[in-house]
């Protein structure tokens, strides 16, 4: 095996995979740092948005760009609706209770999507064929992977600016830190929470639309990216946007390095071993500030 020669290729592949994980991680972080909910429905909400995009594209006959935009609009609506219809209705919820509610939402979304579109995998046609590649320095890069990395990087930067520089982003942070005080300060806490869910669903939807063309569209398509995204979010510290992005990239790369150089059989569990090691050193994640608990 050509060990060094393949290294750039493996790193590039890892980065392409990691940029999708980073998007899912960001989606989870946005919801977690606004409402302290671990959203297990994230992946399946993205799956359903991808199906909607596919429907608009194939059955609706819309041009590619508009179909994808339509899918993201649907994602926003689905996220906002989930918050409004289910989470907001919970009376004095516990953290565990909220997790189970998102699990319930996951099942409802999954059931609905599989009922509407069936279990057979489908193809999401894109203007880019998987065989369109460019070779730079011996590394084969497909346009699809390059687009994935570019879209992901753009989304992350835009999000970063939005959440750190805009009033809405500030309101989200205030809501997480102290809901009651945020409300007293005139922040419409509920609207902020609903907005966070909509935003997260859109970010997840983008991930779904990037996973779809590279793999296939089927009800379980987001199960693996979602788990890796969750892992990436934890690795990055659960509340840090930059941490989530970094975590996604790290997990994608570690996974590919291990898969190529060691074994593909245990590829999917290696990120968790990495997280265990990292958390043993820094229990609050890579980039999150370590908070001191008050008693």
């Amino acid at each position: 095996m050509d060990i060094l020669g393949n290294l750039p290729q493996v790193l590039f592949s890892g980065l392409a995979a990691g940029s999708v994980y980073a998007l899912v991680a960001l989606a989870m972080v946005i919801i977690y740092r606004t409402t302290e909910v671990l959203n297990f429905a994230q992946g399946d909400m993205a799956m359903m948005s991808t199906y909607v995009g596919l429907g608009l594209l194939v059955a609706g006959g819309l041009p590619f760009f508009w179909a994808m935009l339509g899918a993201l609009a649907f994602a926003a609506a689905l996220g906002a609706f989930s918050e409004f219809a289910f989470l907001r209705r919970a009376k004095e919820p516990t953290v565990l209770g909220l997790i189970i509610i998102t699990l319930g939402i996951e099942m409802i979304v999954f059931g609905f999507a599989s009922w509407k579109w069936g279990g057979d995998p489908r193809d999401l046609p894109t203007p880019l064929s998987p065989a369109d590649v460019v070779v730079i320095g011996g590394v084969i890069m497909s346009y699809l992977e390059l687009a994935t990395i570019a879209i992901s990087a753009t989304t992350i930067s835009a999000l970063f600016l939005f959440l750190n520089r805009s009033k809405a982003g500030l309101a989200m942070r205030a809501t997480q830190q102290n809901r009651a005080v945020a409300r007293l300060m005139g922040i419409r806490v509920r609207r902020v929470e609903m907005g966070a869910w909509a935003l997260a669903a859109v970010i997840g939807g983008i991930a779904g639309l990037l996973v779809g063309p590279a793999t296939t569209v089927e009800p379980y398509m987001m199960w693996d990216p979602m788990m890796k995204g969750f892992a990436a979010a934890v690795l990055g510290g659960m509340t840090s946007l930059a941490g989530a992005a970094l975590g996604g990239a790290i997990i994608g790369i570690i996974e590919n390095l291990f898969g190529f150089y060691v074994s593909t059989a245990f590829k999917s569990v290696v990120p968790f071993a990495a997280i265990l090691l990292m958390l043993a050193i820094k229990p609050s994640g890579l980039l999150a500030r370590h908070y001191v608990k008050k008693v």
């Binding site: 009376k91 004095e92 939402i105 099942m107 999954f110 059931g111 009922w115």
Partner: peptide, 29 residues
């Protein structure tokens, strides 16, 4: 508008709905 072959999946909607209903109306289960 739906797949007749996918109708068995309605059970997941019911399942999820029951989980959500219980947790929404009674946080102590």
């Amino acid at each position: 508008h739906f797949m007749e072959t996918g109708m068995a999946n309605i059970q997941f909607i019911v399942y999820g709905g029951i989980l959500v209903l219980i947790m929404v109306f009674e946080p102590l289960g």
